[in-house]
């Protein structure tokens, strides 16, 4: 049946060519990283998606480790891998971690941590940017010892403090609109808390679910005339469309509030946010403990409590509202965007 052999040969050749290219590209990268006589530590960072908050975690993580490395004469190299939302790629990344010589694995976001925790053997794992590690099956309790060689830092937006501040700044507002994607694990977890806290602060909550970025504009338009305040939870789908949401909200003069820093930077008025940079710092402190010999299972999972007030002064100007005096309380921990 094999009448013509040449296509198979060409095929083999192309395969070879592509693999060779990949190999050479990779080789160049690894060459850059070596050539030093200091002691080196290699840290693999696995993440499931691309997100500015995650970049901040990594930034804080790296900054803390660099200063530790400098004072101990240790060179730290990183191997950052992003699965771009594909679990199959995540599986390959984890197998790649297993074969690699990394000393420690930092994993960000829930699906990434789940695959990493299940697939990695014999290497300590630190998770970060996760709201509920127990619900995700990563640890049975926050206190050590954990069943696996794993620990980490959780964060949840400081909702109680946020809503108290909202009430203080907008005492007359009653209905608060919330956009969220029911398909996101973290978003759903946070919504449960928001419902309770909104009630406690005498807000009536009006939820609108969206399933992708295309729905967001339509959902915002339908929601905006029935509400006094619009609130965006830590939801990737919603947060990705912040610019469009901000325009609609501003046109109707409905104050736009958010739960994360990036959204305020892009147009929301203000929020009390998780300090992702400092959760990176906390993760790095755990990493240092592990690198100095502590077993990851013996380290408590802690919650990153650091809060900062994030204010977009340009948005305040656009809405024609003066910056509230109650913000003075946060004078040491305030970030302004223009």
């Amino acid at each position: 049946m094999m009448k013509n052999k040449s296509p198979l040969l060409i095929l083999a050749f192309v395969f070879f060519l592509v693999l060779a290219t990949i190999y050479i590209l990779g080789e160049q990268k690894t060459k850059k990283a070596t050539s030093s006589n200091m002691k080196t530590v290699k840290i693999a960072i696995n993440q499931f998606i691309e997100h500015p908050n995650l970049d901040q975690v990594i930034e804080g993580f790296k900054a803390t480790l660099i200063s530790w490395g400098n004072s101990n004469n240790i060179k730290i190299t990183y191997d950052i891998k992003n699965a771009s939302k594909d679990i199959k790629t995540m599986l390959s990344i984890v197998q790649n971690n297993n074969r690699g010589n990394s000393d420690l694995i930092l994993t960000l976001t829930t699906p990434s941590a789940q695959v990493t925790a299940k697939g990695i053997k014999g290497k300590p794992i630190i998770f970060a940017a996760i709201t509920d590690p127990i619900h995700a099956g990563l640890v049975k309790s926050l206190e050590s010892p954990h069943e696996r060689n794993i620990t980490g830092v959780t964060d949840s937006a400081p909702y109680e403090q946020q809503f108290k501040l909202f009430k203080k700044v907008f005492p007359d507002s009653k209905t608060i609109g919330v956009l969220h994607n029911p398909g996101e694990a973290n978003s759903e977890a946070s919504l449960k808390i928001i419902r309770r806290i909104a009630k406690e602060n005498a807000f009536k909550i009006k939820e609108v679910p969206v399933s992708n970025i295309n729905d967001v504009v339509l959902a915002t338009k339908s929601l905006i005339s029935d509400i006094d305040l619009l609130y965006l939870p830590a939801d990737n789908t919603v947060v990705s469309s912040i610019v469009a949401i901000a325009k609609i909200a501003k046109a109707k003069k409905v104050p736009l509030l958010a739960s994360d820093e990036g959204s305020v930077k892009d147009g929301a008025l203000f929020t009390l946010g998780v300090n992702y940079y400092s959760s990176g710092v906390e993760a790095a402190k755990k990493a240092i403990l592990i690198l100095e010999g502590t077993n990851a299972s013996a380290i408590h999972v802690t919650k990153s409590e650091s809060v900062r007030l994030i204010v977009n002064s340009k948005s305040f100007e656009k809405y024609g509202i003066p910056i509230p005096e109650s913000f003075n309380k946060y004078i040491d921990n305030i970030v302004y965007y223009k």
């Binding site: 190999y23 590209l25 990779g26 080789e27 990268k29 891998k81 699965a83 390959s92 990344i93």
Partner: peptide, 10 residues
Amino acid sequence: ATSLEVGLVP
């Protein structure tokens, strides 16, 4: 997997 193994960005 080969691409990952040789250090290509996922």
